[in-house]
């Protein structure tokens, strides 16, 4: 790890101001990706700004949606009675992230800001039509994820919370990478008043994406069988030593069927 300074932000404004004042400031939001990267000396920062005391934790029911503070840890989402009742698929998703240590430290804001192409959360945001709240604006999930590890956030923009509209039904099914247990393919299916959404993580070269073909089939008939004839294009999918693109395409269909069956 290169030498760095560490500071706790007392609130969001403080975090933004510290970020503006640093050359290579980085927000510490659980650190489950950032800290190992820093330790490998694959990133450096002159200033680590820890958001853990910035008042960004907590889950609230806002009627039509559940609002989760950016610094809410995965374990809190996993065990929240409110989340389990309103969006059980989201609690289940959180319970399958990493291992217990990761879930005790990692946060939803950290995950969403990082937008790892194999992370679980982005699929939930996209399928549920969530809104990303930042220190300066609200961003619809559909506009938020812009590519692998890329988001609509400005350099000094800080996520404050994510709001998830309550769906009629939803389910997340993950086929984990056997080594890392990140999603090799993760499919989040949500049924809302505006129709069915299918978001896929772990598979796309550009990160999380919605699959129009699967959605169309499920909108016409919400059943596992209805997607049998839907082709999943593997040319836009990731290929690595664990799974080639065509296997991932096959798994998308299979995980979607399972998610639909569980809805």
């Amino acid at each position: 790890m290169y030498a760095t300074t560490y500071a706790k932000a007392k609130d969001v404004a403080d975090a933004v101001s510290q970020l503006k004042g640093a050359d290579e400031g980085k927000l510490l939001a659980g650190g489950q990706t950032l800290i190992p990267t820093l330790k490998q000396r694959l990133a450096s920062s002159d200033c680590l700004i820890d958001l853990s005391d910035a008042g960004l934790s907590g889950i609230s029911d806002e009627g039509g949606s559940i609002r989760i503070g950016a610094m809410t840890r995965h374990v809190e989402v996993e065990t929240s009675e409110m989340v389990k009742k309103a969006i059980p698929a989201l609690a289940a998703l959180a319970s399958g992230i990493g291992d217990r240590q990761v879930r005790n430290c990692g946060t939803i804001g950290g995950s969403v800001a990082n937008n790892d192409p194999s992370a679980c959360y982005p699929s939930a945001l996209l399928a549920l039509g969530a809104t990303v709240h930042t220190d300066r604006r609200d961003i619809a999930a559909g506009d938020y994820f812009t590519g692998m590890f890329e988001t609509a956030l400005d350099e000094d923009e800080v996520i404050t919370a994510v709001s998830f509209p309550k769906p009629e039904a939803a389910s997340y099914v993950k086929f984990p990478n056997p080594a890392s247990r990140y999603a090799m393919v993760g499919v989040f299916v949500a049924k809302t008043s505006s129709g069915v959404a299918v978001a896929v993580t772990g598979a796309g070269q550009d990160g999380v994406f919605r699959h129009g073909g699967l959605e169309a089939a499920l909108n016409s008939s919400f059943s596992a069988e209805s997607i049998d004839s839907v082709a999943v294009d593997d040319s836009v999918l990731m290929s690595d030593m664990h799974a080639s693109a065509d296997y991932r395409a096959h798994l998308i269909t299979q995980m979607t069927k399972r998610a639909v069956a569980a809805c």
């Binding site: 080594a179 890392s180 664990h242």
Partner: peptide, 11 residues
């Protein structure tokens, strides 16, 4: 060696 961490080497 592409399997040089537990991200890829599967125990």
């Amino acid at each position: 060696l592409l399997t040089a961490s537990y991200m890829d080497y599967c125990m």
